[in-house]
Every structure is written in C-alpha cells, then in structure tokens.
Amino acid sequence: EKTRDTFREKLAVITKGKTEIDDDFLEELETILVAADVGVETTLGIVDAITERAKQETYRSEEELNRMLMEEIQQLLEETGEEHPLDFDAPLPAKPYVILIVGVNGAGKTTSVAKLAHNYDKAGKKVIIAAADTFRAAAYEQLQIWADRAGVPMIGQAQGSDPASVVYDAVSAAVSRNADVVLVDTAGRLHNKSHLMEELAKIMRVAKKRIPEAPHEVLLVLDGTTGQNAVLQAREFTKFVKVTGLVVTKLDGTAKGGIVLSISRELKLPVKYIGVGEKIDDLQLFDRAEFVKALLGRELK
C-alpha cells in the first residue's frame, strides 16, 4: 500500500540528522499519533517511553531511532496474547467451534461474518452461519446473499424473532450436521443501551445450553474510522460478553485505526483480523509490524 511504502520516507523526515531526541521530534511524533486516533493518553505514554529510553540509550543512526520507535509501539500490541491469530486451515480446538460477532451499528459485522465464512470454507472447514440479527431491516436478506456467495448454509428465523433461539437452532444444526464452525451474526447495538447488551448476554447463555464452552470466540468488530469512543465500546462489550479479539474494518480507507493502541493498553484485547474492502476476499490476518508501519506512515505537512 501507498502509505506503507512511504513509511521509511516519512519517518526519515522527522528523524533526519537527529542524534538525540529533541522537542521537535517528540512534537512531530505526538502529532502523528494523535492524528491517527491513538488518543492523548496513549500518545503521551508512548512519547514518555521514548523520552525515557532516549535518556538511557544513546543511538547513533536514524535507523536505530526508527527501530526504537517501532519497538515501543509494537510493545503496546504485544501484551495482547498470541503473535498471530490462527490460520484458517489450522485445526480448531473444538467442534463445532462457535464464533459470535458483535459490535455497534454499521461497523461491518455482517460483511466480516461473510469474509470469515469464506475463509474457513476455503480452508476446507464445514461452516454454518447463524442469522441472529432479527431486528434490522433486511438483515436476513443481506446475510443470505453473503451466505450464498460464500457457498455455506445459513440458519435463520423470521424478522422479529428471538435471536437467542436462532443461535440455539444453529448450534444444534451444527452438532447434528457435524459442522466445524458456526459464525453468529448479531444485530448492531450501541454499548450504552443496556437492554440490547442484556440480549447479547442471553445469546451467550443460550449457546451454552447446547455447548457449555460456546461461544469459543467473541469477536468485537470496530470501524477503523472510529475515534475515542472505540475504547468505551470495547470496555462495555467486554462487560457483557467475553470478547476474545477484535476485527478492525474499513482500513482500506485512509483511517489508521490507531485507537487499537489505546484498547490494547487498557483492555489487552488482541486484533485478530482487519477488513480492507467490501468484497468477500477483503479480510486479512492482523500483522502487528505492518500495522505499526501504516500507523506511522501518516503524511506530514
């Protein structure tokens, strides 16, 4: 990608001819991070860490300064569990493996369900999609189109029915059909609406009735253009369902998704996948180093 290619260049501009970290450098760094939605607190944390390290280590080249910066920021992402999410063809720890997809309205949940279904299917796994958004206009029709495109079956009920009951049906079907993966699409809900959050907790309980360990994964989908509110989203969703990872969408735009750093710092949630387009192939496993490069590749004026 364009932004990624120019990373060295951009960083070179701010580190050019620097043999120590001065205020100009720190201010530029602060601007880059804040402009990428990293957030003030986390940005100041990173800036402090760099300043601290600079006191202890003398570095000689721009190359070293670049590396130090990358390391510091990656550090924030490192504490959040595994190096990489499992590849789609890796064996799954349970069968059926139930994945619940949650998030606020319009974040990209349904599209992400389709992309995940497609990837698991391609990897030779037997997938079932559960249409547990029984609320939004034409949510069922939308998911049905995606299920057809991915070539996997979908379990659903009429608009207005109980989403927990859809999940129960789907998990039961997965058991009897010997499916490997159940992907549950849920309705968009804002995290400050307690009755909607309770509904999620209920879906969790009902899934457990059929399979005590289910759901094995809960992915919180975040729109990559979201600002500081994303931290509140992550915090609230983790209160009601056991979120195991993040999917950050719409990173094919110019947004950097820097808010992920604050979420890592505060909630230790790993990013597992990123969405980079509207098509079924547009999903990637999260790559920490790539992400940090893209984040810092912000254009400076």
Binding site: D37, V104, G106, D223, T225, T226, G227, T254
Partner: peptide
C-alpha cells in the same frame, strides 16, 4: 457522517 468518527472525519 457517523458521530463516533475520529480524526479522519475532517479528511473525509
């Protein structure tokens, strides 16, 4: 425009 948008809102 989504009110939850961050710094990108301006460029968009």
């Amino acid at each position: 425009v989504d009110s939850m948008m961050g710094q990108e809102a301006v460029n968009t």
